[in-house]
Simulated assay, not measured.
Amino acid sequence: MKALALCLSAVLGFSLVGCSSVSPTVDGKTHVYSLKQQCPTLLEMNVGQTLELTLPENPTTGYIWQVAKPQNILKVEEIYQQDPLKGQQAMVGVGGEKLFRFSALQPGEEWIHVKHSRPWEQNAIDEWRCRVRVS
């Protein structure tokens, strides 16, 4: 019975270790997400830290990722990188990735909301949200 309790304690301990890092970081300062990764309920950041969000995009279709509302405490950078073609020059119609870089400028709380839509339409075909608290 003691062996079973010890075994269960070890399994529970190892499972909690996996949950200790709620937000994936590259260097301890940069939180990295993609479309497939959800943000935690509340992401805690410090001033100077960054959240990077990489999303698949093909602007030639008219659908782009855009920040849905202005940010007050976060600086936003958007970078589009076309997928590399082996041995060829960049071509129209080839998709790529959009990188959003949100840098924490001052303490406060903010919602990051990006949507995938055509700029002239109200309905988004996809969205990504994250509630951020900066201290």
Rank of each mutant, 00 (worst) to 15 (best):
M1R: 13
M1D: 13
M1A: 06
A5G: 05
A5W: 15
L6E: 12
C7E: 13
C7D: 13
C7F: 15
L8F: 15
V11A: 07
V11M: 09
L12M: 09
L12Y: 15
F14A: 13
V17Q: 11
V17C: 06
V17W: 13
V17K: 04
G18M: 08
S20G: 12
S20E: 14
S20P: 08
S23D: 09
S23P: 11
P24T: 04
V26A: 07
G28D: 09
H31F: 10
Y33H: 00
Y33V: 01
Y33K: 00
S34L: 03
L35P: 12
Q37C: 05
Q37N: 11
P40C: 03
T41A: 15
T41L: 10
T41S: 13
L42C: 08
N46C: 07
N46W: 08
V47F: 10
V47M: 04
G48L: 01
Q49C: 01
Q49G: 05
T54V: 09
T54A: 08
T54H: 06
L55I: 06
P56M: 03
P56S: 01
P56A: 02
E57H: 01
E57L: 01
N58H: 04
N58M: 02
T60C: 11
G62N: 05
Y63F: 15
Y63M: 03
I64A: 01
Q66H: 11
V67L: 14
A68K: 07
A68V: 11
K69N: 09
K69D: 07
Q71V: 04
V76K: 03
E77P: 08
Y80S: 03
Y80L: 00
Q81S: 11
Q82T: 10
D83M: 12
D83W: 10
P84V: 09
K86W: 14
G87V: 04
Q88E: 09
Q89K: 14
Q89Y: 10
G93A: 05
V94N: 00
G95Q: 01
G96Y: 02
E97W: 08
E97L: 10
K98F: 01
L99M: 06
F100N: 04
R101L: 02
F102R: 03
S103H: 10
S103W: 03
A104G: 02
A104M: 03
A104F: 08
Q106L: 09
Q106T: 12
P107W: 06
G108L: 03
G108F: 06
G108Y: 10
E110H: 02
E110P: 11
W111F: 11
I112Y: 13
H113S: 09
H113I: 12
V114G: 00
K115G: 11
H116M: 04
H116P: 03
H116F: 15
H116W: 13
R118L: 08
P119E: 06
W120T: 12
E121R: 07
Q122K: 14
A124M: 00
I125E: 07
I125F: 15
D126E: 12
E127P: 05
W128C: 02
R129V: 13
R129W: 11
C130A: 01
R131N: 12
R131Y: 11
R133I: 12
V134F: 07
V134I: 10
S135Q: 13
